[in-house]
């Protein structure tokens, strides 16, 4: 089968295996044009997809556009997903994140955002825009994992992932050399990954 979905060997790297395997099946059915499967996939992922878009682009209307665009791409690319590239959710969020980042990096959007940056203040603000956060165990687990990072690691990760900044911009924002930022991003992700129990 083209999607490399092999029920006898579920991807070992996927956290929360059963749930993720469900997403694999829904995506496979979507790739065959089953709109109802895609509706289920949407229902199980939309708060994360929309929440991530919202966190990066900030403007609710633009976040909706980014999320809509991402879902269309996910539908269109559904047959191209390959379990060897990570979990379905990670694949979907990669698509959303790239689109959100493209959005904020386009010159108009970044100009507008620059004026908003003053309100960001110091340090990570990953808990600021979480109105109506799904307050579940997963959230607590992620926050706990983030708290194990050094300040520079955490700030580099959150500015890049939630803020959509490039490593050069993060280097400027934190006034830390670029080489150090690259290393901190990688160290930070290794620690986050290991704390969250994602298999390397």
């Amino acid at each position: 089968m083209s999607m490399n979905v092999n029920p006898s060997s579920p991807p070992g790297s996927v956290p929360g295996g059963d749930d993720a395997t469900g997403l694999v099946a829904l995506l496979a059915r979507s790739s065959r044009g089953e709109e109802s499967a895609f509706a289920d996939l949407y229902d199980r992922t939309s708060s994360k997809v929309y929440g991530l878009a919202r966190r990066v682009v900030r403007d609710p209307a633009q976040a909706e556009e980014v999320a809509q665009e991402a879902y269309l791409e996910i539908w269109r690319q559904s047959a191209r997903y390959d379990t060897s590239r990570g979990s379905v959710l990670a694949w979907m969020l990669t698509i959303v994140h790239r689109r959100a980042v493209d959005r904020v990096r386009s010159s108009e959007a970044s100009r507008e955002r620059d004026t908003k940056f003053a309100t960001l203040g110091d340090g990570p603000d990953y808990d600021v825009v979480t109105e109506a956060v799904t307050n579940n165990l997963e959230t607590a687990r992620v926050r706990k994992a983030l708290s194990t990072l050094t300040d520079v690691q955490r700030e580099a990760l959150t500015l890049a992932y939630y803020g959509g900044y490039t490593h050069r911009e993060v280097s400027e924002l934190l006034d830390v050399p670029l080489g150090t930022i690259k290393t901190r991003m990688r160290d930070g992700l290794i620690r986050l990954r290991d704390t969250l129990g994602v298999e390397a």
């Binding site: 949407y42 929309y50 929440g51 979990s87 109105e131 799904t134 994602v198």
Partner: peptide
């Protein structure tokens, strides 16, 4: 690949219910 699974978890921390009209339009 392992990093993407890890950063995907960061999206849990900012999950926000999507407006109903997004579902309709998607």
């Amino acid at each position: 690949r392992s990093f993407r699974d890890a950063v995907g978890a960061l999206a849990d921390d900012v999950a926000t219910p999507a407006p109903d009209r997004l579902r309709t339009s998607v």
